[in-house]
Amino acid sequence: MEPEQLEHTEEAVLTKVIVFQLNEEEFAIDVRRIQSIEKVKSITRIPGSAAAIVGVMNLRGIITPVIEVRTLFQIQGREMDEHTRILVLVREEYEAGLIVDGANDVMDIDLNRMEAPPESSGHRKNEYVDGVIMVDGRLITVLDLDKLITPLIK
């Protein structure tokens, strides 16, 4: 989202997003980009792959790479538990799964109310952050999936 568009606040542009947690933070991805939300199944490690790719899993006959978003965000890892979910993204050129700490919320957010990401949020890279938005007292970071995923494709 370009900064000048952020200023158009007259009209509400509602977008359905899936909200998921990583550690204590909440993130949102456009629901149209998510094919399904899966429980963690057996993941096969790929020796010598990029650190963020934990392995591949069998998703209804398709071998799907599984990406640990925490590694990309350079935030502390956490053991998988019963809340861990895999968000399955589908694009024409790839399918991929993202490991998240639980995804249980679908909400409509108004993209016009989205604010630019805070300039210096510490050590985190934020080129794949579209912006942040406050919804009912919760701060949600909206992600740009293409910027997040595409660098991983060689």
Binding site: S42, I46, V56, G61, I63, A96
Partner: peptide
């Protein structure tokens, strides 16, 4: 099966397959 665009040149791995138990083997 191919490993897809994320994993194009993994050393000493030519592809993957799905086994009878549903797991992936390289």
């Amino acid at each position: 099966k191919s490993l897809g665009p994320f994993l194009p040149d993994i050393a000493s791995i030519s592809g993957a397959t799905i086994l009878g138990d549903g797991n992936v083997a390289l």
